[in-house]
Simulated assay, not measured.
Amino acid sequence: MQSLTGKNIIITGASGGIGAEIARLCAERGANLVLLARGIDKLQALKGELESMHSVKVDVHQLDVSDTDAIKAMFGMVLSEIGHADILVNNAGFGIFDLAHEAKIEEIKSMFAVNVIGLMACTSMVLPGMKQRRSGHIINIASQAGKIATPKSSVYSATKHAVLGYTNSLRMELAEDNVFVTSVNPGPIATNFFNIADKQGTYVKNVERFMLQPEYVARQVVDRMMTKTREINLPRWMNAGSIFYSLFPRAFERLGKKAFNQK
């Protein structure tokens, strides 16, 4: 792993959860940060915390990644100020668990706008500079849901399947440019993600004992920054399930039916 000291790292969805924890670890390792999220108050508080503890520069800006015009303007301004981005962490995203026939079109559009289009738009803003410098790292926070679709997550899973498809293609495109591309595929994480995704609390109650801690996930990501890591799959036993699913999908769906319907 290269030292992160002096690296310029942009993180979307940085106001809480694993985004904020990634920011804390990067600051601890001497990186300069640009933190983006919709909640500017939380970002300002995080900026104060990090700059009081570490000798790093932390810039925070309010950004809704569903607004591609705002992304273009924001990244143009940020890159003119910091010069270049060494690492982009596309962390912004959300999900809503509903049966497919009950999913609202507005929410479907919003999930794709944030989880997919916004991620692609942010990436497109830093790619030219990374290719020109022949250095950089794109880290896309996807999900195990992008590998195993389950009931009541049809739309969310579809967005994460899209993220994985985009990430895998991008990795091959940039193979000769010395720009690394990593997908992060965690299982359920103990964050406020489920305040929106699981309004009834059923899923959280059923999987609570399996939930990953955001600090753990963040450390796995930061430890692999500026390395040629293809995927980070957490937890390992869940990723083993995705491998089994790709080999024996019908058997996997039959055997896992009871567990899958716990949302």
Rank of each mutant, 00 (worst) to 15 (best):
N140P: 03
P151V: 00
L35V: 00
M125P: 07
G13T: 02
V217R: 02
T167M: 13
L127D: 03
I40G: 02
A45W: 09
T229E: 14
G146M: 07
G256Y: 07
V222I: 15
K42F: 04
G83E: 11
A103S: 12
K42R: 10
V217G: 01
M77L: 07
L247H: 09
Q262W: 06
V181S: 04
I117V: 15
I243Q: 11
I40L: 13
R236I: 12
H137V: 06
I18G: 01
F97M: 13
M172S: 10
N115Y: 02
H61E: 12
I148K: 04
A73E: 11
A37L: 14
A103M: 13
F248I: 02
P235L: 06
D86M: 11
N91R: 13
E107N: 11
N90V: 00
M225I: 15
L174C: 05
K263Y: 11
V34Q: 06
D198N: 06
G95T: 12
M53T: 14
L50R: 01
N8D: 09
P249M: 08
M238D: 09
I105C: 08
R24F: 05
F180Y: 09
I18H: 01
T229C: 14
P186A: 11
G17D: 04
Q62W: 11
M111K: 11
F75K: 02
V34P: 10
R38P: 05
K47C: 02
N233R: 12
D41G: 15
G48Y: 07
D64H: 06
S246M: 12
K131P: 08
K160G: 01
V179T: 09
P249R: 08
H101W: 13
N115C: 02
A92I: 02
N192L: 11
V221E: 03
L170P: 09
M130Q: 12
G201D: 05
L164H: 04
E106S: 15
D98R: 15
I141T: 00
I71E: 08
F180T: 01
V114D: 00
I10H: 03
V163T: 03
N168C: 06
V207H: 09
D98S: 15
F244R: 05
M77R: 10
K160W: 02
